Each structure stands twice: as C-alpha cells, then as structure tokens.
Computed example of a mutant assay.
Amino acid sequence: MTRILVVDDSPTETHVLKSMLEQHGYEVSIAEDGDEGMDKARRERPDVILMDIVMPGVNGFQATRKLTRDPETSSIPIVIISTKDQDTDRIWAKRQGALDYITKPVTEDELLGKIDAALKG
C-alpha cells in the first residue's frame, strides 16, 4: 500500500486530504507542523509527502529543504500544497527541492495526478 505523509497545521485541510486519499486506497499519516513532518518522514519513510507552507515553527519551505538534503529522506518526493499562489512561491518551492506544487483548494483529480506523477518519478 502506498503511504502518504500529509504535513499541514489545518485540521480541516488534513481531514479533507486524508478522506480523499483513503478513498483511493492510500495509507495516510498526518503531521501538524514541519518538525513533526520531518520526524515522521525519517521514521515512517512515506512514498510521497504532501507539504503545506505556512505552519508554526518550521515552515514547509524549511522542512522541504531539510528533507531533500538529508540522505535518509532525499529520495522521498515532496509535493507542496498551499494557498500561496504566486509564481515566486512555486519557484522557491522547487529551489527547496519540491517536486511539484498544488494551490488550495485541491481538486481530487489534480491531487491524484500529482501523486501518481511523483510515484513514477
């Protein structure tokens, strides 16, 4: 079963994503901030990480940069999911090591397409 780690501080957003993904057979784990997300990524080794940007403490850009530069987690694809929709945010996310970027609100088709692409490498 494909394992996905959702890193987002919004209980509503994590509930929506978790429900959507579980309907399609994914195993979903939740982290509420960047620190917890990095810990869970190292411990659980998910197949894909869905990362919010704006979170307390370590933000999504910082967590993405740390995870993609850590040999233990660098092979895990990270897709940013954020309300921030500026081109500069997308460019910065890619520079931090994110594979892709989705703007909230997320549609099911877009989310599943990005996850499928991330899994294929």
Rank of each mutant, 00 (worst) to 15 (best):
P77V: 00
K94N: 03
D87P: 10
L99M: 06
D85T: 14
A93H: 05
R90Y: 13
W92I: 12
T83N: 07
R69G: 13
A98V: 03
D109L: 13
D109C: 10
S82D: 00
T88L: 10
I80D: 03
S75W: 10
D85N: 15
E108S: 05
E108C: 08
P77F: 03
D89C: 07
L111M: 08
D87E: 05
I80V: 13
T88R: 06
P71R: 07
D89I: 07
I102Y: 12
P71G: 04
R69Q: 12
T103G: 14
R90Q: 10
Y101D: 06
P71H: 03
I91V: 15
Y101K: 07
R69P: 06
E108P: 02
Y101S: 09
L111V: 08
P71Q: 05
A98W: 02
W92V: 12
T103N: 12
R90I: 09
D100V: 05
T88H: 08
G97F: 06
A98T: 02
S75N: 14
S75E: 11
R95D: 06
P105W: 10
I91T: 14
D89M: 05
K84G: 03
D100I: 06
D89H: 08
T68M: 13
G97I: 06
T73W: 10
E72T: 00
I91W: 11
A93L: 04
R95V: 01
P77M: 02
W92T: 14
I91E: 14
T107E: 14
A98D: 01
A93F: 06
K84F: 08
